[in-house]
Structure formats: structure tokens, C-alpha cells
């Protein structure tokens, strides 16, 4: 487990679930490459940092060769994501565009490029961070929901190809976390005590990924939610509307 030669790539590794994952991976002997818009803000052990705003196609095209050259990776965590909450019609169209670019297009492009160029070691794992919203409707974040659904299905569609390269694909469906991201996009006065600690979520997701599982829903409560959301999609979406959409700031 703790051989120094293992390498991991974490996109969006400077904060939230990404930063928590970097911490866990370093503790388990991985050398880390972080791709992010912002510099990593902590870290006793240094990481190799690649700066890129994934909303920009040209920036991603510029760093793709570096990303491939920084491999080969034993683990790739495609975690970078953004959200914008509000009434769909009232949000700036630019927000919808950026969400789709960062949450869907960029991880798809990176995954395809890494797999095709053999930048993932055989026996390695790749994780796509989707969202628990995949199991329900998410009124108040329609473009986010679309972006995360698309990513989950892309991962599922690529599983066969990845397997031919010896790489397992895991889709993570984390629920609300105690991160700045969740803080920004939940209704005012929402109870944050039920949100999961990102370190805990990172540990569970990475364990599932290293075990080669197809999906990872961290937390028993979230797994129950996913099942109920699948069996009763309409009532669960109605609950989401009441809990989130109707409470959003106008």
C-alpha cells in the first residue's frame, strides 16, 4: 500500500473533497499531481501542481500534454466541479456553459486522453465524481444535475474500453459535504450537521475505487436515499423541490 512509486492525479485538488482526497492519498504513500484553478492552500508534503481553469477549452488543450507526461497514474480522481443554484431561467447563461464545461466536458476529455495515451497504469483506477442528485431530480440546479448525470453515464459507457487497458472505472455519488461548495449552494439556514465530513467521504470513495467497485455512494443514509430516489423518482423530486428550490433566494 505504501510504496513510494504510486502516483495519483486529482483534479480540483485544492479544496473540498479533492483536498481531502489528496490528504488521504499522501498518507497512503502516493505522489500527487493536482490540477486546479487555484493553488493548493495547505499540505505538508508538496504536490506537483498544474494550473488550469477547466471552463476554458484552450487552457485544457494547453495542459493536456503535461497532464499525460506527469503520469503514468495508478489513480485518477476526476473531482473538479462547480455549481450554480437558482431558477434555471434566471441564471446567467454563462453559468450553464461553465458548469457543463467543468463538470462534464473536461473530465470526459481528460479521461479519454489519459486512457488513449496509456497514461493510466494497468491495474489502476479512475474515479468520476458525479453526485447523489443522479438518483433524483434536482430542481434549483438543473444544469448541475444534467452535468453530473452525463458524467455518470459517460463513465458507465467507457467501462469496457478502460477495462481493455486494465483500468477500473468507479463513479462516486457523494451527497452533501461539509465544504465551501455545499455551503454556497444550499438554502440559507440549512442544517449542515447532516452533511458528511469530506475526509470521511474521500476515504470511503477511494477505498471503493481501489477495490475496483463500479460505484461508490459514501454513507449509509445516502445509499438509502439513492434507493428511494430510484424507486420513487417523482415523490423524491417533489421533496427536493420543497427542501431546496422553494427556499432559494429569489
Amino acid at each position: 500500500m505504501t510504496s513510494a512509486s504510486k502516483r495519483a492525479l486529482v483534479t480540483g485538488g485544492s479544496a473540498g473533497l479533492g483536498a481531502a482526497s489528496v490528504g488521504w492519498l499522501q498518507a497512503n504513500g502516493y505522489e500527487i499531481v493536482v490540477l486546479d484553478r487555484d493553488r493548493p492552500w495547505t499540505g505538508k508534503t508538496p504536490v506537483q501542481f498544474i494550473r488550469c481553469d477547466l471552463a476554458s477549452r484552450t487552457e485544457l488543450d494547453d495542459v493536456l500534454p503535461d497532464l499525460i507526461a506527469a503520469g503514468p497514474y495508478d489513480l485518477v480522481l476526476l473531482n473538479a466541479g462547480i455549481n450554480a443554484t437558482g431558477k434555471f431561467e434566471a441564471l446567467d447563461p454563462r453559468a450553464h456553459i461553465d458548469i457543463l464545461r467543468v463538470n462534464t466536458e473536461a473530465p470526459m476529455v481528460i479521461a479519454a486522453a489519459l486512457l488513449e495515451s496509456n497514461a493510466c497504469r494497468s491495474g489502476g483506477a479512475m474515479v468520476f465524481v458525479s453526485s447523489l442528485s443522479h438518483f433524483t431530480g434536482y430542481p434549483g440546479a438543473a444544469s448541475y444535475a444534467a452535468s453530473k448525470d452525463a458524467l455518470a453515464i459517460y463513465a458507465r459507457s467507457m467501462r469496457k474500453y478502460a477495462a481493455s487497458r486494465g483500468v477500473t472505472l468507479t463513479v462516486a455519488f457523494p451527497g452533501p459535504l461539509k465544504t465551501d461548495h455545499a455551503e454556497r449552494h444550499s438554502p440559507e439556514g440549512a442544517d449542515d450537521s447532516k452533511r458528511m465530513d469530506p475526509d470521511h467521504a474521500a476515504r470511503l470513495i477511494l477505498a471503493d475505487a481501489l477495490a475496483g467497485k463500479k460505484s461508490s455512494i459514501p454513507g449509509a443514509g445516502n445509499r438509502v436515499f439513492a434507493v428511494i430516489g430510484r424507486v420513487f423518482p417523482k415523490p423524491v423530486t417533489a421533496v427536493m423541490r420543497r427542501l431546496i428550490y422553494t427556499r432559494l433566494k429569489p
Binding site: 431530480g137 444535475a145 474500453y161
Partner: peptide, 25 residues
């Protein structure tokens, strides 16, 4: 999901999620 057309499948899954959210909104 479809292994022969991954990006296409992803785009259509996105439409599914978009419709679910907008239908409620």
C-alpha cells in the same frame, strides 16, 4: 449508457437530468 457511443450517451443522459429538474422547477 452505450460503449459504442459514449459521448452521445452522456449527452442524452444530461438531457434526462435536465428534464427531471426543469419539470419540477
Amino acid at each position: 449508457g452505450s460503449a459504442s457511443i459514449p459521448a452521445y450517451a452522456a449527452s442524452k443522459a444530461g438531457l434526462h437530468g435536465l428534464a427531471r429538474a426543469l419539470r419540477s422547477e
